[in-house]
Amino acid sequence: MRGTAYGGEAPGKRWPVNGWLAAACLLLVLGLGPALCGAVVGPVRSRLLAQNVATVLAALVLLLSSPGYDRPAYLDTALVLAVLGPAGTLVYERLLAEDLPRGTPWPALARAASWASVAVVPPVVVPVCFAVAPGRTTVKVLVIGALLVAGSAVCGRALARAPRTAVGEDSGD
């Protein structure tokens, strides 16, 4: 059966590393590697930020794997991660409220990382939108992109603020 859902040539016996998979590898090395390092060192707040950045980058790699392996069905994994990722980060931020110190040791890096995790989404989502078969799949990719931008922005802002003092609660306990 010649041709595929993405109109590219049917892949040969071994996977040619096409453009999409090359971009995914780039994201893996340049994005997820540092995010993992960020999650291993530093105070809890910067680790949580690194976890949020890792979630966004992982969702983008999952999104790229769909045109990369020529399988529209792989979008479901990106959709589930785009929905669950920010929820996880927000729950951790809520539970670790008293562990989060006022600010992170490198505030500029933290702001840049949270801003970058929002800014990196459109340049990945837009090409995938065009590569995907028009119609329902494009809508799904746009929904994933919107969820990632919204979730990452909310988490970034929730982490960047100083811990709010709740009603009548000293932060000592």
């Binding site: 995010a35 999650a39 680790r47 890792a54 992982a58 794997s65 792989y74 994994t77």
Partner: peptide, 23 residues
């Protein structure tokens, strides 16, 4: 700290499984 790194490990494993064609 381990809980947060476990979360990143979950992500890394999910990526590996997708690359091994196991969505």
């Amino acid at each position: 700290h381990q809980a947060l790194v476990l979360s990143v490990l979950g992500l890394a494993l999910a990526l590996l499984f997708t690359l091994l064609q196991a969505p």
